[in-house]
């Protein structure tokens, strides 16, 4: 299993999931390439999922495991005859990330633009030092 050095996030490949779940949709299960970067406030994940529309994207958070699943439906019409076939007609992109407690799971935001998913995983506000006033009784 490939893991990141990040404290907040670890990636798991689709194959690890494929061993525990059955494919219920037609097409091939693929691991999308991702960029993962971190700034002071958040960890951001970019994933290439060409052909996946907003309605075909599922983001699932379960037991601290964030799974992104996007389905690219077949675009070819039924009368079309393939001449050059380099990628599957229909494909499902899936990848999972293990989140730590340092991620504010309520504030995760996802946007999908031109077939690229952008996931923003904000870090939990650090406990700030507080001054405690001692009152005399």
């Amino acid at each position: 299993m490939a893991t990141d050095k990040t404290q907040g996030l670890q990636t798991r490949e689709a194959r690890d999931i494929a061993t525990t779940t059955e494919a219920t949709r037609p097409g091939m299960l693929l691991t999308p390439p991702v960029d993962i970067f971190e700034d002071l406030n958040a960890i951001t994940v970019l994933a290439d999922m060409p052909g996946v529309g907003p309605g075909e994207l599922k983001i699932d958070l379960h037991d601290g495991v964030l799974t992104i699943t996007g389905h690219a439906a077949a675009r070819e019409g039924s009368n079309e005859v393939p001449l050059l076939h380099e990628y599957p007609r229909e494909e499902t992109f899936q990848r999972s990330f293990t989140l730590s407690e340092a991620i504010d799971q309520e504030q995760i935001r996802a946007t999908l633009k031109h077939g690229v998913l952008r996931l923003r995983l904000p870090k939990v506000e650090r406990a700030k030092p507080r001054q405690i006033t001692i009152q005399t009784g």
Binding site: M49, P50, G51, E76, E80, V81, P82, L84, E86
Partner: peptide, 24 residues
């Protein structure tokens, strides 16, 4: 080889579909 392309035809058209995520 980028971008991956599928080419197909029907009676009246050819169709070329290239996967180029994240472009304008």
């Amino acid at each position: 080889v980028f971008p991956p392309m599928n080419v197909s035809e029907d009676r009246d058209h050819y169709y070329v579909r290239a996967l180029v995520p994240g472009c304008d």
